[in-house]
Design a protein around this nucleic acid. Structure first.
Lengths: 344, 344
DNA sequence: AATTAGCACTCAGGAACAATGAGTGCTAAC
DNA sequence: GTTAGCACTCATTGTTCCTGAGTGCTAATT
């Protein structure tokens, strides 16, 4: 099943052309393409072979050819030359990181927006895993007699906060003591282990030093029972609406509803290995995504994968452009984060 | 232009029926409705009158009638009996506020989700105005030699945070002093006035006590130049896709793109007076929303309006249900916030 | 005077049909 | 091995016709 050079050429042109036009490619129009020196009849013969091998398909008996999933797969694996991005593209991507003072969330959100703007597909960015971040500081700031806000800062500068109420019977000094104990004992503990640690180590100390021991421990446990899942950020959710393959409204609805299913998407994207990953059509193992491709990339610090960025588009997607863009963005994100982490 | 009782009845039935079925209502089917004792011919006559007065329309010469904007307006103003919500509905709305420990944002987000689930329309919730909140506490927490995170807590428990870098030449003691000065001087100042205040009052003090005066003031100014716009939360963005009037994909796309235009939506919703507000079709002064109605409600503390909740649906919207739901939710939000503020 | 039955008329939407044209596969000639 | 030629296929478009739900108007009825 080795393809001749001519077959490769034809396959490539078919995929390229279809990606551009979304129209089945016929032998005649193909024969007029630049770089094609042979006649439409020859092309028809080659096409018949390519079809037999499963790389291309017809939409009906007398239609032009369209790449099959196998065709896209081959194209991505063997025929793809990474698109050289324009200076303009690169400038825009870098602009994400221009500000000196920032909320990390904003950076992530901006990444998503810009990625979707540059590609016209839907972008999905999975924020960095906070649950492995280590606690740097806890603070409790009373707002009034009954309410206070607890603030958790991690070594990466991530800030979580919770509002809670305490009966006014609890003394300010007790709160202060508690916070001190917590900071002493929990500094450097990953967020996901906080709850454990508090029962194993902090509880005893609290009992020794605090009046309202039960109540305090209880409240703390509640506070720390925070589900710190990675946040998801989207860009261009509506871009799919402009893709000709989704003129069918029920398809769109299914797709959109799926996208809004955050935990679900989150799982799909999280479970990708390092580097760039292309899932085409049914490779996504989901009926709704049969006409979609998902390209994911990861960003990391050192060896540790931290989060993912992804582009969801039709199978007829500009693979080369998307891969290039994800490539430089993931590198940039990795850089920023590495700077942040490495100095710790 | 006074309507007879019979005309009112007919108008009401037409609107109710059309809201339910999305189909033009004909005289024959109307005559068979419960409570209608007169013949289809009579109804045709009355319909002709109603049409002359502009309350109903035909979609083509021989079609049934459909409410006009004026018809909906009349219906909303005069014929609407607030829907009695089921215990089930009420329980669900109250469930938003069940937790003792919370992030306020989560409450708002949950409000949006539940509102859209209960109505099958798109919900938009404008978070409480933070810029008028008063500063309670500023903290700066160094993460490593060059990076630190600044945290701002308001009297309402809202937490803002910014990551920034400082040259390691700046002494820890200077940072501490600065934070002390800030907390002393800026406590109780509304966020929107911080920037002003810092130049007018804090600058002088800093110059007296701090070594790296210029650099510090500069960094602070950058930090405080935070655009604290109210956040927007959405629910059921895709619900519009299920509405039969939007089978046309380009309409949907326009609508969705508009919804994603956050500043824009934000303005529309913010600029509504207290209480419940119904904007029908072209009353929204926006071509894209000609087939939509927007119902907004506000939540407040005392006399002060804090934020808004809104439902966007087709003009053929279940006005009475939506109004009731927004009513109880806005009351609930007001209660929660009042508890939070009043104790200050 | 108000209501209703009756009738002619309108029009969106669907079915049936033909024409068009972009495409194919195959065969025979180059 | 390549290509010209030809018969064939089928999605798409436009035309026509039919049906049914609905209307407005008029004349009869209450």
């Amino acid at each position: 099943m080795l393809l001749t050079d001519r077959q490769l050429l034809i396959l490539q042109v078919i995929v390229d052309d279809f990606i551009r036009s979304a129209q089945p490619v016929g032998s005649r129009s193909l024969s007029k393409k630049e770089g094609i020196t042979f006649s439409s009849a020859t092309i028809r013969n080659e096409m018949a072979d390519l079809e037999e091998m499963g790389f291309i398909e017809k939409t009906h008996t007398s239609s032009g050819r369209v790449p099959s999933e196998k065709g896209y797969r081959y194209y991505v694996d063997h025929l793809l030359s990474p698109q050289v991005l324009t200076q303009h593209d690169i400038t825009i991507v870098h602009s994400i990181f221009a500000e000196k003072i920032f909320e990390f969330e904003k950076i992530i959100q901006r990444s998503a927006s810009i990625l979707s703007d540059l590609t016209n597909y839907t972008s999905i960015v999975l924020g960095p895993a906070v649950s492995v971040n280590k606690l740097k500081k806890i603070q409790i700031i009373p707002l009034n007699k009954e309410t206070a806000v607890a603030i958790f800062v991690t070594d990466t500068g991530h800030v979580e906060n919770r509002l809670f109420s305490l009966p006014s019977s609890v003394h300010a000094s007790d709160i202060e003591k508690t916070v001190n104990i917590l900071n002493e004992r929990l500094n450097g503990v990953p967020l996901e282990d906080l709850n454990d640690k508090i029962y194993k180590e902090v509880a005893i100390l609290l009992r020794q030093h605090i009046h309202n021991y039960d109540l305090m421990l209880n409240t703390l446990a509640q506070l720390l029972k925070m589900p710190v899942t990675e946040k998801l950020f989207f860009g261009g959710k509506t871009n799919m609406l402009s893709q000709p393959e989704f003129h069918d409204i029920s398809k769109i609805r299914d797709l959109m509803t799926m996208i809004d299913q955050e935990e679900w998407i989150s799982n799909i994207i999280r479970n990708n290995s390092k580097g760039i990953n292309v899932k085409i059509g049914s490779e996504n193992k989901n009926k709704i995504m049969d006409d979609c491709s998902l390209i994911t990339a990861t960003y990391s610090v050192g060896e540790e994968k931290l989060g993912s960025i992804a582009i969801l588009g039709p199978t007829r997607m500009e693979y080369s452009r998307v891969i290039s863009l994800l490539g430089i963005l993931s590198k940039d994100l990795t850089n920023v984060l590495t700077k942040l982490y490495q100095n710790n």
